[in-house]
Design a binder for these strands. Structure first.
Lengths: 145, 145
DNA sequence: CTGCCACCTCAAGTCAAGTTGAGGTCAAGC
DNA sequence: GCTTGACCTCAACTTGACTTGAGGTGGCAG
């Protein structure tokens, strides 16, 4: 395939043009030239954007992701980083599972007020201590533009 | 117990004084009076802050949490909201589990480059479509002040 | 009674990840 | 050759949840 301009990349990947410019500015992607003012991208950009999306979904920041490419643009992914992240996710999953079970219990519990339900109060105590980590991102529906 | 001032509440709950002021401004908590300039809180504030922490950990925004109290300050938690949130969390867990498995595979995979591993590429494709939802919050260590 | 210092107020700053808007440019079609 | 419209640049704005800083005040130990 021939080189792609911003609009083509946006259409092919669903990543808005403004985000492509932003990623370029951050050094996450690079355009290979211009036609007039318009950026030209190598078609490999599509995979690269998928990889970036994957990194984001795994919980890496854009800066971390930027560090996962060699200056030449090859992915250079440290396997131990992946394992660490998998472990992070595992911990998160366990916390979320506890949270989910607690919420389900609270939803069904027949105690007159949640405050009188021992299960609910236990969950509260754990949350107060930070034992449940950071807030859950509520996975909002992905809008297709 | 007697009424508590900001510093006492902060010590008892680990919530910084600046955050207490912020929560009051947002209407999430109310001070019961003043001694000079200092806010005085009913000891019930401790439970209330636990409840707020729980809501945050469950993924509710501060505004949503504010809506879970009656104007009189009683918790008024809609059970169906809890179920919906539990369902949200369940979906998140499934996505995270897929992510974790993919990461573990990628960490072990003997393909010369991740890009040549079919499992990894499948994960990339799913991420590119937004099938993995929003980024995972990496549950950073809770700092105790 | 006095001074200290913890607490106060209010405005502004931070962070991440983008988005938005005003004004500019240029390749292409007529 | 000129218009058009898609892209461009650069700066500023957005959101959520707080934190920080400068300058003020008053309860209470001495």
């Amino acid at each position: 395939m021939k080189d792609m301009d911003t609009a083509e990349v946006a259409k092919a990947t669903g990543v808005p043009a403004s985000t492509l410019r932003y990623y370029e500015e951050k050094g996450l992607i690079a355009s290979i030239g211009r036609r007039g003012l318009k950026r030209l991208f190598d078609p490999g950009i599509v995979d690269r954007l998928s990889l970036i999306a994957l990194g984001r979904a795994a919980g890496f920041s854009l800066d971390e992701i930027a560090g996962m490419f060699t200056p030449e643009g090859e992915p250079r992914i440290d396997r131990s980083r992946l394992e660490d992240k998998a472990d992070d996710i595992d911990r998160t999953i366990r916390q979320l599972a506890a949270m989910r079970d607690g919420l389900r219990h609270a939803a069904e519990c027949r105690a007159p007020s949640h405050m009188e339900c021992p299960t609910f109060r236990r969950l509260m105590r754990v949350a107060a201590r930070g034992g449940l980590g950071e807030p859950v991102p509520s996975a909002p529906p992905r809008q297709v533009r």
